[in-house]
Computed example of a mutant assay.
Amino acid sequence: MNFPTMLQRCSAIGAVLIVAGAVLFPGLGQAADLKAFNESVAAAYRHFRGASFYLRTGNLAVATFELDDMQAAWRAVETRFSAAPPDSFAADPAWRETLRDIGARIENALRAAEEGDLKRTVSAVGPVRGLLVALRARNNVYVFSDCVNEANAAGEAILAFRPRPHAFDDDDWVNRLRAQAAVVAYIYAKCGRAAPLVLRNDAGFNRLIDGALDEMASVLIAIATKNSRLLAITLGEFRSFDRILFLNYG
């Protein structure tokens, strides 16, 4: 009788453990695929944020470098996941179309940037942010970037409250401003709690969150004292925090 060697026994045990893992913990592979997808998208999106910053300042030359890197990173996303989406996205009929649309937009933006057309570059690549938000939302996937998007949306809303003569005599305006300050504070605090551990341990990130919360406290002081100048300064300072949140951490 031929007895199995130690190597054969170890191989057999390993195979059994793999099968058992697949049976007992079927979600592990799915979670790994979703994590890999989110990380791959984040790698491309980092260059989108950089390109957005340079496009806002009119620096097409540097934006082109960011778009070029974004294109390479997004091609990696399409190559790996277009035909094999993570389970969370498998039922989405627009999965491939969305990935292709984003890739095409990056290509069009890069071409426009190389031709020196700022407006066309922004028009091509700008919607990528919304496409990714919609892709995750319709598939019930939520990542930290979505919290940043919520914070930026709330920030945009409060920045619309430009101080004007006698504004503090308008009770409706004051109540809406106070309510929006509360919304901004709530979402920024939520993002501070929901951030990945590496960010929660990052002094710069924590200073940004605390700074934004301090600005919302200053909004309430401006309301209480009817101080238009303080409100204008506060909103201007908050705008910087809001933009940095997206650029560095979105």
Rank of each mutant, 00 (worst) to 15 (best):
E150P: 00
I106V: 15
G103S: 11
G126C: 00
A194K: 14
Y188V: 15
A112P: 02
Y142K: 09
E115S: 13
A76Y: 03
R176N: 14
R138P: 00
G155E: 04
A83I: 01
V62S: 02
L60G: 12
R100W: 06
D170F: 09
R162Y: 03
R138E: 07
S82W: 01
T64N: 05
A94P: 01
V77P: 04
V128Q: 06
A124W: 07
V128G: 01
A179C: 00
F81A: 06
A63C: 05
E97L: 11
V141C: 07
D92G: 10
F89L: 07
A124D: 10
E114T: 13
A189Q: 14
S88F: 05
R96G: 05
F161A: 04
G130H: 09
S145R: 11
E156W: 05
V141L: 06
D117R: 14
V141H: 03
G103W: 12
M70F: 06
A189T: 13
R193T: 12
N152D: 10
I106R: 04
L110K: 14
W173E: 00
G130K: 11
A179Q: 13
R164Q: 14
R100T: 13
R80C: 04
N149I: 04
G126I: 00
N175C: 00
G192D: 02
F144W: 04
V77K: 11
K190A: 13
Y188T: 10
D101T: 15
R129G: 12
